[in-house]
Nucleic acid binder design. Structure first.
Length: 502
RNA sequence: GGCGUGUUCGUCUAGUGGCCCAGGACAUCGCCCUCUCAAGGCGAAGAUCACGGGUUCGAAUCCCGUACACGCUACCA
């Protein structure tokens, strides 16, 4: 390794959205790099042109940055090792391909898809791992194909690929940073295609070359690449390069333990963003799927910087983890409970504006969109909401008149005297000074005591009239925030609308 | 079929030869608090560690075998 500075990368294909599994891979790469005071790089692997999705590259980078994972180098940020998009580096792969051909580590192959498939089926029938039959391995490299046939094919302009030539005896052992020593059966290693007939390299070829040229010190990726390690190590050997350190992460699973997929739940990070989850909770949750601080630590809530400080690859587990949304929900609540009100205001302002555009409010818009009012709502509701947008949607009575009253609650809480009591208590509220939770509570208790009644006889009806529902924050504080005018209006309206038969 | 990896409460996990027939969190249930809903506090239930052998004074931990799950087996990445 030329450079000692730690460099890691996240190398997605621009085929769509950022998968939560990809987020975790990116996150671990980022955490490791930042922990080691190194660099985190984004590279786009678009060698399969048929699967490329417009704008996917942008969206991937944007979603990562939303999560707080900002690259030091990338197609957007630039850097010394560009280009950072593989389709812009084809001349590099051709050069290295030529070198392997010269060194007799690779050869041309003119086999058709049909021939390959036929050969594959034959081998499967025999219970063998399908391997290329080396039909086009030239004589001079130990095969049976005369050079003249190869030259003839080239002259005809037949499509070909370039395959690596796997030696008969190679080392099949390496040390994985998470799993420890891993061994392979060398007989299963195939003459992998390195360059496709469209002039693009395969993942195997391009990633080895780029990982070396971009000087990555650690490759942290999903375990689906583990069986390809022998081929990759061999390519490093062909080029005379020292390989980086490797760590293969276990996959995230569905509840039925199959690989995480759309059919069983949301897998795009965007889906969670859309639902209202914050980046704090998502990052915390994803990090803890298969990693823990160790040494009996029981901490569950980690901010990004804390994760950086404490992250270690050795603490990543080997087993696949089931993506369990209940834990994510709990984490989101923990973050909402402790987040600064100003931050929450920034998030709910657009939500509130959107609601105000749809519905008419009888409250002063200047007041209910002001910081002071919103801070009060937030402090009353933060222990009761599951998402930030619920400050607006779940407690809409702070912004809009209730449109209905919870039927069951009305049945339960209304007695024949309720409306008369409410009317009479309204007169108390009209002259109450100042209009605060404390004075409201005192007034209410002073009101019911002489009548030999419990406070509850008014508390529940007041709540229902003020909010439309039977649950919510402390009644007195709610009434204070709403203000006298709104409270009186809602009580008066409620009395008109609710009556008790019998 | 072949190769590779994995397996501890429902879920995420602690654990790395004795502290553990197993700790924490989420979820579930109950009590307290309480005007409601929450939050908080306390408690309960829940895995002898996939299964079977072996090594050892002693195994969740080391070894062997089996089962199951996941991945690779493409001119996908």
């Amino acid at each position: 390794m030329v450079a000692q500075r730690v460099r890691t990368r996240f190398a997605p294909s621009p085929t769509g959205y950022l998968h939560v599994g990809g987020l975790r891979t990116a996150l671990y790469n980022y955490l490791f790099a930042k922990k080691m005071k190194g660099d985190f790089i984004i590279r786009i692997e678009d060698t399969d042109q048929s699967r490329k999705v417009e704008d996917a590259q942008q969206n991937l980078i944007k979603t990562l940055e939303w999560a707080g994972i900002v690259a030091d180098e990338s197609p957007v940020h630039g850097g010394s090792f560009g280009p950072y998009v593989q389709s812009e580096r084809l001349h590099i792969y051709r050069e290295y391909c030529d070198r392997l051909l010269e060194d007799k580590h690779a050869y041309y192959c003119f086999s058709t898809s049909e021939e390959l498939e036929e050969n594959r089926q034959l081998q499967l029938k025999q219970g063998l791992q399908p391997k290329y039959n080396r039909k086009w391995l030239p004589e001079e490299m130990g095969g049976a194909m005369p050079s003249s046939n190869i030259r003839k094919k080239m002259a005809e302009g037949s499509p070909y690929v370039v395959r690596m030539k796997v030696p008969d005896y190679i080392s099949v052992w390496f040390e994985d940073m998470i799993r420890g020593p891993v061994e392979f059966d060398s007989s299963t290693i195939d003459d992998q295609v390195l360059m496709k007939s469209d002039g693009f390299p395969t993942y195997h070829f391009a990633s080895v070359i780029d990982d070396h040229l971009m000087e990555f010190t650690h490759i942290i990726r999903g375990e689906e690449w583990l069986p390809s390690m022998p081929k990759h190590l061999l390519l490093y050997e062909f080029f005379g390069w020292e390989p980086p350190k490797f760590a293969h992460l276990p996959l995230l699973l569905n509840p039925d333990r199959s690989k995480l997929s759309k059919r069983q739940g949301d897998v795009a990070v965007e889906d969670y963003i859309r639902k209202g989850y914050s980046c704090d909770a998502i990052v915390n949750f994803v990090a803890m799927l298969g990693w823990n601080e160790g040494e009996g630590t029981e901490q569950e809530v980690y901010a990004l910087q804390e994760l950086i400080d404490k992250f270690s690859l050795e603490r990543v587990g080997k087993a696949g983890a089931v993506f369990n949304v209940e834990k994510l929900n709990w984490l989101e609540k923990q973050y909402i409970k402790h987040r600064p009100a100003a931050d929450i205001i920034n998030t709910i302002r657009p939500v509130l504006a959107s609601e105000l555009a749809k519905r008419e409010t009888l409250l002063s818009v200047d007041v209910i969109t002001g910081d002071h009012y919103l801070e009060q709502v937030i402090e009353l509701m933060r222990e009761r909401v599951g998402f930030e947008h619920e400050f607006v949607t779940f407690s809409s009575y702070f912004f809009f008149e209730p449109e209905s009253y919870e039927e069951e609650a009305v049945k339960k809480r209304w007695i024949p005297e309720t409306n008369d009591l409410l009317r009479e208590f309204t007169a108390e509220l009209e002259v109450l000074e100042p209009f605060t939770a404390e004075t409201i509570e005192s007034a209410l208790k002073a009101f019911v005591a002489p009548k030999g009644l419990k406070a509850a006889v008014l508390i529940h009806p007041l709540r229902i009239l003020a909010s439309g529902v039977s649950f919510g924050p402390s009644l007195y504080h709610m009434l204070e925030v709403l203000g006298r005018e709104a409270v009186l209006r809602r009580i008066t309206k409620g009395i008109e609308q609710i009556s008790v038969a019998e």
